[in-house]
Design a protein around this nucleic acid. Structure first.
Lengths: 228, 228
DNA sequence: CAGTATCCGATGCGATACTG
DNA sequence: CAGTATCGCATCGGATACTG
């Protein structure tokens, strides 16, 4: 560790790009290579592979075959889990102190959707499958389809062909702000910045199954008004 | 913050080399440019300057003039202090999990002395000034002189000319291991790996004023025996 | 699907020299 | 003492292509 009195040969590791994000995604529950790729979009596959190898060598990630012995899975080891705690602390710090004015270009709809998916409260939804279409407006226009069942949840980046039960339309940046707890969901709904369309029963239930980011409750420590 | 859903233009900051070490040194109580340089040896002055500017721009470090309004001082802001907490958590993690076999080349006598100096318990020393010479043996042979007074403490890298009250001789790596809590001080003294020479009163008091690294009490989580 | 190999361009950093 | 400016090398990582 750099914090120590000695200087390691490789000042690598958490200093390297992507590594903390990969640890975050592992800690959040992704275990397959493809899941990790979704949770850390924009990372080249070659780098994800390389980083996972490094983390395995360092003893922070355990690579093993799944129950059927077919496909590889990645899990945090004890040291990896402890490091994940630090990554979360970084996240909290970011939520408290990070710059408030966000460049819309920096918000990634894919990652936003992937993160939101993880927090969705399936047991607040009806028994039968619900298909929700998300229309992201703004600089990066994009649509997603969520198939929500009690036992399973999947995201598509193309229309799956099922009947659409509900369409949620929102500007990507707005949705990001709500997701991060910077704008109250109720306010955005009231102002029709986020518009759920469909049967009343579903649109009304929307706020109950659409949970926010884990950091959303943490308030910003930066005054919103002044510019210094 | 990278941990969030957005990708900042500059994935900079704590990812950058030296930045966490500078924050550590600031948190440890160094405020002058020259102190920071000593506490973060091997950093080019130009980079230290650059990093301090970046940290100031980010609002994590406050640069101001000292009481006499003569020389600049650097202090952590609130956000900087909170980040310092994370840096300390990184340090703890390192102490628990970092590789046990240390390359002697990686241990920096300058930094070791600078760190030890900070923890010395001055009120466990006699009233009058005590001059202690430290002889570091091993790959990087080097000597230091500590002038210890009740009110002040200074380190020299050359013989200050005062009468030497005590000479402590030790291999640099051994001293590092003791400093990090990996080898008990009493054991190293008993085995004469660390040899304080001088008046009995002083050598006997040595363990009382020579305090270890803050992380020393944290045990390693890595089994020392097995090699996997 | 789950990777690996290679190549090339960007940038980060260390060395050196210079300034108030 | 407390910096800043410049410059060239090394490394890091993104793109692309290929493999079991």
């Amino acid at each position: 560790m750099e914090i120590s009195v000695r200087y390691p040969k490789q000042p690598k590791f958490f200093t390297q790009r992507w590594t903390p994000l990969i640890l975050r995604e592992l800690g959040a529950g992704s275990h397959r290579f493809s899941e990790l790729q979704q949770g850390v979009p924009r990372i080249p596959r070659s780098l994800l592979s390389q980083r996972l190898n490094e983390l395995e060598d360092a003893g922070d990630v355990d690579r093993r075959m799944d129950a059927e012995g077919k496909r590889p899975e990645y899990h945090l080891t004890t040291s990896g889990q402890e490091f994940f705690g630090i990554v979360m602390a970084l996240g909290e710090w970011g939520q408290r102190w990070a710059n408030q004015d966000i460049d819309p270009e920096d918000v990634d709809p894919d990652l936003l959707m992937w993160d939101m998916r993880r927090r969705i409260n399936l047991d607040k939804l009806p028994e039968q499958r619900v298909t929700v279409q998300f229309d992201f407006q703004g600089v990066r226009q994009q649509s997603f389809w969520l198939m929500l069942e009690r036992s399973e949840l999947s995201v598509c980046m193309f229309d799956p062909g099922f009947e659409i039960d509900m369409i949620v339309t929102a500007d990507t940046l707005t949705l990001h702000k709500v997701w991060m707890g910077r704008t109250p969901l109720q306010e955005a709904l009231r102002d029709e910045l986020i518009t759920p369309e469909g049967p009343r029963a579903l649109t009304k239930a929307f706020p109950s199954w659409f949970a926010l980011n884990v950091f959303a409750p943490i308030p910003s420590a930066v005054s919103q008004v002044s510019t210094n």
